[in-house]
Design a protein around this nucleic acid. Structure first.
Length: 664
RNA sequence: GGGUUAGUAGCUCAGUUGGUUAGAGCGGAGCGCUCAUAACGCUUUGGUCGUGGGUUCAAGUCCUACCUAACCCA
């Protein structure tokens, strides 16, 4: 029986804006692996899809004033287009708001219930009277009880990073309606008793995690040190999979009980024999691909549920977790206009160029910075120079001297053969191990051999010397290499592989080669192809870098060390003082309410235009109770250090006035 | 605040269980070739391995503290 391969790629939120980081984070590696497996003749089921549930969809739809279904359709179409543009070969790119998914989740829930692993518990949750619903943590904002920052979330302050219970938040408001009529009400939720699964899960983890990628097993090991916690798998939301239990009509299942099983329901939609993979035991190899932020769910939450079903579900064999890709020194950000999102990427360069360059830069061991300059280097050197140019020089030289039929082969070159086979076996094992950088290195090594061979054999010189048999033989070998390159490149750059395949009029398949063999017959007809790739010139690099990197990075004033040179009382407010502050140049006037102001104190001044950590807007010149203030003396909390929001920072007398103050 | 990971040549990264002169690709410099897309091949130049302690005959590799970054959790 052929071994079956189950391959899944993390399900993105339906409204997620997909960028190059997502592409290399899971879609591309999983696609390369799936294509490789298929080329090896393995029986592959490869699925992905959109996660349509959860609060992000609700909030997003409300923002665009669309019914959730329409909103999801809109973004789902965008995803489909991107997946198509980049040649991702899913058996199905599905979605989770389906009948199949609902039916499955209901069955699974009942199953858990039967196993005695579901318990009803009562908790106190914020309830918005005007919205007539319970609010999740991120749907609640208010004033931070620690630092007084207004705009803190239900469970955490973005400014001082303090955490607290939702009940402690001051002036709580709903992000949905803005209403401040929030009551703390008791509500019942269903808990999955994961703690009962702890031993089974630990045993499972010990057996499986060592085979995973380093990033994945390290994160999972961290979790093994803590116990498993019982988790609520229901939420007070109107959007999601409804809970199939009386008394829970107004609730839905938590996305992390819902989403991972989307792999199963999408498999079901993709292939009616889905169960052969999902219940196939040791005859199935299951590989999951995801970003590092998703490891917890795939190493803990999903498997503990699968094991709890006690129903022989196939659990992950290879958990491949990627780190994050940064762009030009920072995170991808739509709002900051940093980074290339998939819809624009495909307009700037062909899919295969992105695919190859990203795989060559895959963030496998740590976050990796990706730049346009690097992208151009890789495309120009590897794809254009080594691969594209090789195909071109071989075809053109042959056409000129022999016509468009592959010249006759002479003696088989065993040295060339062993060189190729060595790299080929490196490439095959790298792919089997899901090590993509290593795979690209080996692939590149194969491309290099062709060019080295040309230099060594000098067929153009042989032609000049009248040794047509010798030249023809060398070129014949090169055509065998082109055939090989088409096969080994196919998982990485499928479009280009097809072009290479099309060099030959009688086409061979693109199955994965075990060894370097001559498949191209003497006299086989070929066509000289168009150039496989185009060079990306320096001008384009500069243009693209500028286009996708935020303008004028951050030339706003920095926090500076400043000394208070004078303190006056505020004319109308007892709690405020008017300071004269020396930050190295002319003294500036600052209004300050801190109790510890005094002449001679050296502290931290945030000048006008300075961006404080967590602040949305730069520091503005303001009038405080009728007195102009040109900036602010900062407390520790205001610069993101600790929670003292009351007193301003006091530096020692050795702090250099006017020097930049580093807040972190 | 806790857990985990990472900090190695200008850039992006390798460096198995500690063991002789720390590797690769790109970039830079030089040479060769002219079949080819200003492409290809060869040679070469770059590093007190984040910082400070410590263990050891021996540390990029182990321990500890600190700094920086990222992810998850609280």
């Amino acid at each position: 029986m052929t071994k079956k391969y189950l391959i899944t790629s993390a399900l993105p939120y339906v409204n997620g804006e997909l960028h190059l980081g997502h592409l290399i984070g899971c879609y591309l590696p999983s696609d390369v692996y799936a294509r490789f497996c298929r080329a090896m003749g393995r029986d592959v089921l490869y699925v992905c899809g959109a996660d349509e549930h959860g609060t992000t969809a609700v909030v997003g739809a409300a923002k665009e004033n669309l019914p959730i279904i329409d909103y999801n359709n809109k973004y789902y179409e965008k995803h489909l287009r991107a997946m198509h543009d980049f040649n991702l070969s899913f058996d199905l790119y599905g979605r989770t708001h389906t009948e199949k998914q609902e039916k499955l989740i209901h069955e699974l829930f009942s199953r858990l219930d039967e196993q005695g692993l579901i318990e009803e518990r009562e908790t106190i949750q914020p309830f918005s009277v005007d919205d007539n619903m319970f609010l999740a943590d991120r749907q609640l904002v208010g004033t931070c009880p620690k630092c007084g920052f207004d705009g803190a979330r239900g469970d955490q302050c973005d400014k001082c990073s303090a955490t607290y219970e939702a009940t402690e938040l001051l002036n709580p408001r709903s992000t949905i309606s803005g209403s401040d009529r929030i009551e703390m009400r008791p509500t019942k939720n269903l808990f999955f008793l994961a703690s009962k699964m702890e031993n089974i899960w630990r045993e499972w983890l010990a057996e499986h995690a060592p085979k995973w990628s380093k990033t994945a097993s390290a994160i999972a090991r961290g979790w093994a040190n803590e116990g498993l916690r019982d988790t609520s798998i229901t939420r007070d939301l109107s959007w999601g999979i409804p809970v199939n239990k009386p008394g829970y009509e107004n609730k839905v299942f938590y996305v992390w009980f819902d989403a991972p099983w989307g792999y199963v329901s999408i498999s079901h939609a993709a292939n009616e024999n889905w169960a052969q993979w999902w219940h196939g035991g040791d005859n199935v190899h299951y590989a999951q691909f995801m970003g590092k932020d998703n490891v917890k769910f795939h190493a803990v939450f999903f498997p503990e549920q699968q094991l709890a079903m006690n129903d022989n579900w196939k659990t992950v064999d290879m958990l491949k977790a990627m780190n994050f890709l940064n762009f030009e020194g920072g995170k991808f950000s739509k709002s900051q206009k940093r980074g290339i999102f998939l819809d624009s990427a495909i307009e700037e360069a062909p899919a295969d160029a992105w695919r190859y360059a990203l795989l060559a830069s895959a963030p496998e061991t740590d976050d990796t910075d990706f730049t346009i300059a690097r992208f151009a280097d890789i495309v120009n050197k590897d794809l254009n120079g080594m691969l594209g140019n090789f195909v071109s020089r071989v075809c053109k030289l042959t056409a000129k001297n022999f016509g468009t039929n592959v010249p006759a082969a002479g003696k088989w070159d065993t040295e060339l053969e062993s060189q190729i086979n060595e790299k080929l076996s490196e490439l095959t094992s790298a792919l089997d191990a899901c090590e993509f950088r290593n795979a690209i290195a080996a692939l590149r090594g194969l491309y290099a051999i062709g060019n080295e061979y040309m230099t060594k054999m000098e067929p153009w010189a042989l032609v000049k010397n009248g040794d047509m048999a010798g030249a023809g033989d060398a070129l014949n070998k090169c055509f065998q290499l082109i055939d090989l390159y088409a096969r080994v490149s196919a998982p990485f750059i499928p479009g280009t592989a097809e072009k290479m395949q099309n060099v030959f009029v009688t086409q061979n398949d693109l199955s994965w080669p075990e060894k370097f063999v001559a498949r191209i017959a003497d006299g086989a007809e070929f066509v000289v192809p168009e150039n496989l790739f185009n060079r990306i010139d320096d001008e384009t690099v500069a243009k693209l870098t500028e286009k996708y990197t935020p303008k004028v990075e951050d030339n706003s004033p920095k926090l500076v060390v400043a000394e208070i040179v004078a303190v006056k009382d505020h004319p109308s407010r007892d709690d405020l003082h008017i300071l004269s502050v020396n930050a190295g140049s002319a003294p500036v006037q600052v209004v300050c309410g801190a109790p510890n102001v005094r002449v001679g104190l050296r502290g931290v001044l945030a000048p006008v235009g300075c961006r404080l950590p967590g602040a949305k807007k730069p520091m503005a010149q303001r009038t405080v109770a009728g007195v102009e203030s040109f900036g602010m003396m900062c407390s520790a909390a205001e610069v993101g250090q600790g929670d003292n929001a009351n007193e301003i920072i006091e530096l020692g007398a050795d702090a250099a006035i006017g020097a930049e103050y580093k807040s972190n």
